[in-house]
Amino acid sequence: MTTVGAIANSKTPQNWNWQGFNITYQSCGENNDAPAVVLVHGFGASWGHWRKNLPVLGQIYRCYAIDLIGFGGSAKPSPGDISYTFETWGQQVADFCREVVGSPAFLVGNSIGCIVVMQAAVDNPELTLGVAAINCSVRLLHDRKRVTLPWYRNYGSAIMQRVLGNKWIGNFFFKQIAKPKVVRKILLQAYRRPEAVSDELIEMLMKPAFDEGAVDVFIAFTRYSQGPLPEDLLPQLTCPTILLWGTEDPWEPVSMGRELGKIAAVDRFIALEGLGHCPQDEAPEVVNPILLDWLKTTSNFQ
């Protein structure tokens, strides 16, 4: 299997200047006549979370994986200099399609990356050939969803967000979780195949945590409980749309995914039996054929 190191050795990740900030991305695929695919990671991840998908999709399509601003190798400016919101990230993806890809693209996301690609597609339908969302974040701590929780859970999460707003406490909390053993433990909850939680994966996720500004980005996002929900954005999509969902995801319940799948704009809901929150990395041999079939059927290109 091609690893992140193999991809990096054969082709160094590239850089793009967006609004004065450095953005890192990786690409695979040399056929300039092929449709483009842009892959967008989830919270705390980077383009490397698609390292098992890029070389496979890139055999046929022009495939790109981008680091959202604030994550991976991309710049991590102060929240005072940029707003870490889905509108910001959606604009970043749209501008990437315009300036780097040079054409409309199929947008594929995982976790919060799903909301990013949906936002990009809603705001820029002319740049979007289709949307594939893999275990979309349902944003259970969003203000509109917290009011439906028991008072003690709603109150507790609100207090936690305020506490993390204290810079000293936020820094201390971040340092406690930004440790290999802790990250591994969290991933073993999210993944259902423990062998997929490799040293390579841990290293990939840990490295950006030591970048200047990483703590501030973490705190800014953990306190972000506004903005769009997937149920707001999905009905507005006018492009082919599919949802893939690992049925054993402990963070984003598949029952909520099935409800999203009932929205008229969704062409198909695909349950990925026995998989967790990041199926594209946990079981690429399952996810890649599904994406390839969808791309082939939707684009009529093979």
Rank of each mutant, 00 (worst) to 15 (best):
W50L: 10
K207N: 15
W18C: 03
D81P: 11
L295T: 03
F221S: 08
G72K: 00
E87H: 11
L205K: 05
K185G: 13
R193H: 12
F43Y: 15
T3R: 00
A34K: 14
E212R: 08
I242A: 07
N22T: 13
V100K: 11
G72V: 04
N171V: 00
G156Q: 12
G90R: 06
P230R: 05
W18K: 03
E195Q: 14
V183D: 02
H41G: 11
A34G: 14
A220W: 02
G102M: 12
W89P: 07
I134H: 00
W151Y: 10
T128V: 01
F173E: 09
C239N: 08
E200Q: 14
A36T: 14
A158K: 15
K262M: 05
L229K: 06
V138E: 05
D281S: 09
I177F: 11
Q91C: 10
A190R: 01
T298N: 04
L233T: 01
Q189P: 01
L291D: 05
W251K: 00
L243W: 04
L244S: 02
V138T: 15
D232A: 04
E259T: 05
L292P: 01
R258P: 01
F21R: 14
W294R: 03
K207F: 12
D281T: 04
P180M: 06
L275W: 02
N288E: 02
L39R: 08
W151K: 10
P289D: 00
F173V: 14
A75S: 15
P240M: 08
C239P: 08
I115M: 11
T88D: 12
F21L: 15
E259N: 07
D81V: 04
T85L: 09
T297N: 13
A105C: 09
L140F: 14
G72F: 02
I69T: 07
V287T: 02
M204P: 04
Y25I: 04
R223Y: 04
E212W: 11
L127W: 03
T2I: 14
R192G: 10
C136S: 14
C239W: 04
G261D: 02
R192A: 07
D267Q: 15
S74N: 05
N166K: 02
I177C: 09
G261H: 06
K52Y: 09
L57I: 15
N53A: 07
G130V: 02
P13F: 11
N154W: 08
W245H: 08
F221Y: 10
T247R: 04
T24Q: 11
F269L: 06
V93Q: 08
L295G: 03
Y25D: 07
W294H: 02
A196F: 09
F96T: 06
E248Q: 07
R153P: 03
E282V: 00
F43D: 08
A196L: 09
G113S: 10
V266K: 08
E282H: 01
S83I: 09
D199I: 06
T12G: 07
L39H: 07
R193E: 08
M204E: 15
S157Q: 13
S137K: 06
F172D: 05
